[in-house]
Nucleic acid binder design. Structure first.
Length: 330
DNA sequence: GTGCTATGCAGGTACTTCGT
DNA sequence: ACGAAGTACCTGCATAGCAC
């Protein structure tokens, strides 16, 4: 639009870069001064500002008399971003949206990343690391050094490239090297999980991100075929999947009913308000452990009505628990 | 000349400060 | 409290300069 193919004057280009530098070094600088420093008029500065905003350079005027400055602490030249990096940003929210529940903090995190990317010359890896640092919610207690493969995995998902990963399987306490086609990243309980096709097991598997010890992107692309995430996670309380179909019926006391309704869930339970103010909660799940754990957080405010076998199971569990403290008795 | 971009002048608008 | 003056931001328009 403003480009000039032939006879291209470098004046404007130089001036645009100058403006960026000036605003960067002196936030709040006003149009008049910019004009003087660039040896031009204010009119030209205003036009240049327009061009900069077309180029998505977030310089803004923060009100009358406050001059110009970058939005947030942004001080990056977006021209340095590769197409791929921009894509990574652009698709991140939709990536998570595919599992229905976008963590409410994602958007603010997104903005923080932009603000955090302050350095004048931000290397590609630094940028992606910023994403990683903002999004990752915790590190395993035993790990001192933060090894983080979030950015690598996002890249692989975007470019549909197979990764080779060294992964620690906690339940068997073994470390294996395997090739994985990364499909989706899903957030659960302050953690990220990767769902993908494991070439060794020849099946879809779920991997906890913090258990990756090494991740390398292979020079090999994949197709997702007809994998359906929603179907894959159907009736799954959180992340652990099972083969069962357990129809739970739980009654929550009036005291906690409204808190239960407010909880963010990955399944859609049937909720019925009872006359006494308590809440009947019905859900069918393919695995019990995570659900029971959640339920126990409500203590005596939650009562399993069905199935009977789980009433007994819960009772046994509580008796064993009680037993731990009974040892104190003399 | 025509068609285009880049520029500067002049003037408008919105807000702040000053003087009464 | 209120209007005048001042300041900063923004825009319309004429024109210079260049390619064709």
């Amino acid at each position: 639009m403003y480009g000039q193919v032939r006879g291209m004057k470098t004046d404007r280009l130089i001036r645009l870069i100058r403006i960026i530098t000036l605003v960067q070094s002196k936030p709040g600088i006003m149009a008049k001064e910019l004009a003087e420093r660039c040896e031009t008029t204010e009119r030209t500065i205003y036009r240049d500002m327009e061009i900069l905003s077309f180029a998505n350079i977030p310089i803004t005027n923060l009100g009358h008399g406050k001059g110009y400055q970058f939005v947030g602490n942004f001080a990056l030249y977006p021209m340095d971003l590769t197409e791929e990096e921009l894509m990574a940003f652009a698709v991140l929210p939709s990536l998570l949206e595919q599992v229905d529940l976008v963590p409410p903090d994602l958007y603010s995190a997104y903005e923080k990343v932009m603000a955090a990317a302050r350095k004048e010359k931000l290397l590609r890896q630094e940028l992606l690391d910023s994403v990683t640092n903002v999004i990752q919610m915790g590190t395993p207690a035993y790990k001192d050094v933060k090894t983080n493969f979030l950015s690598t995995i996002i890249q692989a998902i975007l470019s549909q490239q197979t990764i080779e990963a060294r992964y620690h399987t906690q339940s068997r306490n073994v470390t294996t090297v395997r090739a994985i086609d990364p499909y989706y990243l899903i957030p659960r309980e302050h953690r990220f999980y990767l769902i993908g096709y494991c070439h060794q097991k020849k099946a879809i598997r779920t991997f906890r991100l913090s258990r990756f010890l090494e991740v390398n992107i292979l020079d090999q692309t994949f197709e997702k075929d007809d994998f359906n995430l929603k179907a894959y996670l159907k009736d799954t309380w959180s992340i652990e999947r099972g083969e069962k179909r357990i129809a739970f019926k739980v009654k929550f006391s009036p005291r906690v009913a409204r808190y239960v309704k407010e909880e963010e869930m990955f399944v859609k339970p049937k909720l019925t308000d009872l006359e006494d103010g308590s809440l009947l909660f019905e859900v069918t799940l393919n695995h019990d452990r995570e659900f029971l754990q959640w339920l126990m957080g409500y203590g005596a405010e939650a009562e399993i009505l069905e199935p009977q076998s789980y009433r007994r199971k819960m009772k046994e569990l509580l008796q064993r628990w009680l037993g731990v403290y009974d040892r104190d008795k003399v």
